[in-house]
Design a protein around this nucleic acid. Structure first.
Lengths: 213, 213
DNA sequence: TCCTCCTCGTGAAACCGTTCACAAGGAGGG
DNA sequence: CCCTCCTTGTGAACGGTTTCACGAGGAGGA
């Protein structure tokens, strides 16, 4: 396990979910080929990905589903719980608070902030919205989510970094600056729409091969 | 302009936004170096990206901001309007309906569907929610957005494909099957969280270089 | 036991995107 | 006009990821 590429980690998440599915189908073993088919990738890719963490399979048989799931769970760090602070109680923020799936996966949203006076004090899905000014004095969260308008994003980002979060998930369509010890992921819906717009504008739309969805 | 890579298109979206910024700062020309600095990439990358569509710059001077913006606008297909159908009027769907930025960029959400009887008939931001069963009979949208629970995603996907959309933006954490003439983009928040979880679980968190955010 | 069939693990090759490095174009000052 | 400075556009080198292809392990039947 020298160094793991970003794409590999993403696929690990997918494998994890596919394993859940096939487990429900009553299987005990699954081949790299079957995993590959459900993901639309090659079996060699699956084997390479998994082999970078260890030898989980048995030649001639495939991978034992339960064991592989446990392994991936550990690799992804889902065998523990993470605390998350959400900044921005608008539509996106509220959607995150309402979605119970994250909690099931080990992500506990323990704090919610907003700059709008009208939202501060409101209780959304059991959490009381606090003013963004309180981010500064707090700390101890593992991750922060930025679900604010773009103009506020960099300030919130700085505040979260000051509150020593180690990971940030950003929904604002802007490149944020973080120190190298903070992991940053950006979900930019505007960019996704524009990417679709580009694809549809091409002479042969849909002729694009590999998608990095 | 032979074949454009996915990463290049994404960066084009970024350039487009940065150009907006620098235009507001009163500049007329911008160098690849300046664009690169704001994006955190190399100037060679910027020049390569742009040169795959034509020669927009002037040696010694840089790129004329207004002209470049117009060019990128055309390349991305933002010089026309696109019709979009949103399926799923939950939190994500509502967030999209509420966000006026998409309309400003040329994306008109002209239809909203939901399977819940309680939501059907509701008016959200000016659009009346219709039952998903009506997707089948309709057609004529450019794009479809899937903002439903994961269990409904593939059915909705099939319905949208039948309604001859040419692009789909999927928020459900599952790999969808589409014919090769339909462009598919997936925004998988669960995967982003898990990717952060992995990064934070590493011995040297944050020591990851290039991020594909 | 031997033979066949299946599937993993993995070095090597192929492929693709990024970075380097430099020739060439263009502006401006003297 | 010449010299200097700046920045583009691009072939070549580089680095990293994906795919190929095959050796090896293991099950099962005869």
């Amino acid at each position: 396990m020298s160094r793991i590429s970003g794409p590999t980690v993403r696929r690990l998440s997918h494998y994890y979910r596919v394993l859940q599915e096939v487990a429900l189908e009553g299987r005990r073993m699954v081949s790299s080929q079957m995993l590959a088919d459900r993901e639309g990738i090659t079996s060699a890719q699956v084997r390479k990905d998994l082999s970078s963490f260890g030898s989980f399979g048995r030649r001639g048989l495939g991978y034992p589903i339960d064991h592989l799931r446990t392994e991936i769970r550990t690799i992804l760090g889902l065998d523990r719980r993470w605390t998350v602070a959400v900044v921005g109680a608008g539509h996106i923020g509220s959607a995150l608070l309402a979605y119970t799936g994250f909690e099931q996966q080990g992500f506990d949203i323990v704090a919610v902030f907003d700059s709008e006076d009208s939202r501060v004090g409101q209780v959304i899905d059991g959490r009381t919205v606090r003013p963004v000014s309180e981010i500064a004095g707090s700390e101890g969260w593992d991750m922060g989510v930025i679900a604010t308008p773009v103009r506020a994003a960099q300030d919130v980002d700085d505040a979260l970094v000051a509150a020593v979060v180690r990971g940030i998930l950003n929904f604002a369509p802007r490149k944020l600056k973080v120190p190298e010890w903070v992991a940053l992921r950006t979900v930019d819906m505007t960019m996704e729409f524009e990417s679709l717009s580009f694809a549809l504008s091409q002479p042969r739309p849909g002729k694009r091969r590999r998608e990095r969805t």
